[in-house]
Nucleic acid binder design. Structure first.
Lengths: 227, 227, 227, 227
DNA sequence: AATGAATGAGAGTTCATTCAT
DNA sequence: CATGAATGAACTCTCATTCAT
């Protein structure tokens, strides 16, 4: 029922000829073009600041199509959120950290997280927007709760192995470690504009980001290592 | 406030017509009431989502007063931002970390940062909002750039002392350390709603926050300590 | 209905795919289901207020079918009107008032009219709707003008007999009498909602309606009787 | 509270200079111009069929003003209803029927009712519209329930006097008589379009209406007179 | 310093309908 | 006979803002 409310007409099996429209992809992808433009628009302006008209112009379609495919502005926004989260989860599912030492495995996890957020600034904006909205929309999604991150479980396994070996410190809580890893991968990007403005230094520079990564990684490593 | 200081304490003499409700106290308090209500409104809804009408009702004034005192929605928003940042800076200025060891001093800095964000959720929302807007409004403020945090300088001094003593690791960049300290004090709060929803665990609980603080502090300490 | 007459009674053999719900029975019943749902929808909401989508959901079909069978919203509405008027005319055609005295015959006519409107509230709503539209749609119908009521002619015959006998008052105009009879059978139903609300008395009650009928009948009788 | 919800901003005391606008009256009557145009628009098209844009063009203002003065389409509609009903009640309040015989008094009441509806076709359309909506809007008005017709009470007094004198028939129910009087004054007008179309005779003609009035009056008189 | 009235511009949404098979 | 996809046109309503005192 919930899933029906959230599925959008025409989301599956795209049949028939492609629309003549030039903005949208040739592969019949009005829906896809809308989703891509909406991702950018919501990431750039938040939910309330996003303009359906603007994003439709960008997608090369009409406003009407948003209602055809997604039912409402919130419906479109939720679809955007689901897609962004889906990509993260899909990438996480490919992680394999059992072929190495616990410490290296945990650091590989950190590297993955750090790289993913670094490569996906829109995901960061979307998540920040959603938190400003107190997760109102995420809670309406049937899909997202069903795809919580596998990473805490991965962490748990590695930590157990490491503790048994004596290489990892005791009493590491998997979820809290995950949250700290994300914090060190996310905050300097999510808040880059105020930080850069206030400290009069451009934190978007590749050099700054590379050094931040090295420092953050060192911090995680120092925390994990058994003394 | 200024006008209150001039009136006899406790006199409660009303100048002009009495306010319609409890929002705006005393004459001249309209501006303050507006600022307080706006802080809550912008924090809760972001810039585009905030409604001038709503915040005025909350403040017990009319919309017209916003234009009278602040000129525009952005003007009001910038005033809110300046006030919130001003409070943080004022508190930072009171910090004294020269009476202890470098390590303890740095940890005291971390504690301060962590406590301040923990106690000021609206500041977090405001900063996130401002980053979503790419610091557009902050850049329009004349005051904020003039009050960049003294903390990196404090860090720098402590680190230098610690490195000289041999108690603090070498090559700690003050700004990057500051950013990491804030990350570990901010992210679990700024993103608490999505995190709680996705992992089905209430991260707003006092217990969770206490443990997060302990872990984050340990992480910072591990990083700083010279091996 | 026609198709059902051809199938073996009770065979329930389905032609084509089974309907999705209980709205449209049997193959070919789509048109009928649509007509029934549309009658209710137009009666309840007027022409402009009626929603094609809503009535299709009720009928268990898709919006597209309305265009398939009726061409347009107006086409469907006209069909509804024709059906409702057709039923009234068909019933009127069965009337036989020649086997009694003129006065009793005229009162039997009144009883028929009163009962028919009492039993067909949707007809009342439809006629009121149509008058609000200044009979715009009725005038587009080819059928309705061809089926004007036989009742005025019946009245005329009875009145003539009655006047000749000396039992019915002179100078009774058949059409005007018909209109008054309908007025006394229609208005208390067509305006029941405002009347009930304004006079704070429930005029939909069976008791009220029974007494109204008795009074109205007495009024008609008093009018007709030669002094 | 209810009355506050229904009162509209600026409805009272019109101060300040008249707007430059040419369509609306000079007396600062944007609100009045809107009300007049809305009366015509709602009468002609019903609630759902009425177009705010159309009525504003007619009133020489912008759509925005409807929301300024009336808050919503329903708010405007309710104001229209209140005004139309108010006029009827105001006229009824001026009735004096105590200076004549009961029968003549009752017939004077009928004449008044008949004349009022004859002179106010928009009131008829508005009431029919409201009944189609099942009195949904009338029930939201605080004013209308407070101004139920004084006529039934007038009828009651006259009937009592007439019965005492022996000139009026016994057991006449005041409300039912009132409803029948209105029926005979209303139906031939409310349903004039379908009637004219179906019977191919123009019932809007002055002659037809005059004769209808005479017949209806005779019917009421025949009903009232004690045999 | 303080205010009530008026407003331009554009937002999201819904409607009946047609295209193409 | 039956249908899913696509759509143009308009709708009601809300927003921040300015006028005039």
């Amino acid at each position: 029922m919930a899933s029906q409310a959230l599925s959008t007409p025409g989301s599956r099996k795209r049949i028939g000829r492609p629309p003549r429209n030039g903005g949208a992809d040739d592969a019949g992808g009005i829906r896809d073009a809308l989703l891509a433009a909406a991702t950018a628009e919501f990431a750039r302006n938040g939910f309330a600041g996003a303009r359906i008209g603007r994003l439709c112009k960008e997608a090369g379609t009409t406003v009407r199509m948003v209602y055809h495919y997604f039912g409402s502005k919130s419906g479109l926004y939720i679809a955007v959120l689901e897609e962004a989260m889906g990509e993260l989860r899909a990438a996480e599912l490919k992680l394999d950290v059992d072929d190495t030492t616990p410490l290296l495995g945990l650091l590989r996890l950190f590297d993955f997280i750090h790289d993913h957020f670094d490569a996906n600034p829109q995901l960061i904006s979307l998540l920040s927007t959603e938190n400003l909205a107190q997760a109102r929309y995420l809670k309406q999604s049937a899909k997202i709760p069903a795809m919580s991150s596998p990473v805490p479980k991965l962490i748990e396994r590695l930590v157990r192995r490491g503790v048994d070996e004596g290489t990892i410190r005791k009493s590491v809580d998997p979820l809290r470690l995950y949250v700290m890893m994300v914090a060190l991968s996310y905050f300097h990007l999510s808040n880059v504009h105020t930080l850069s403005a206030i400290f009069d230094e451009d934190l978007t520079r590749a050099g700054w980001r590379r050094q931040q990564r090295r420092d953050a990684r060192a911090m995680v490593e120092g925390y994990l290592r058994a003394d």
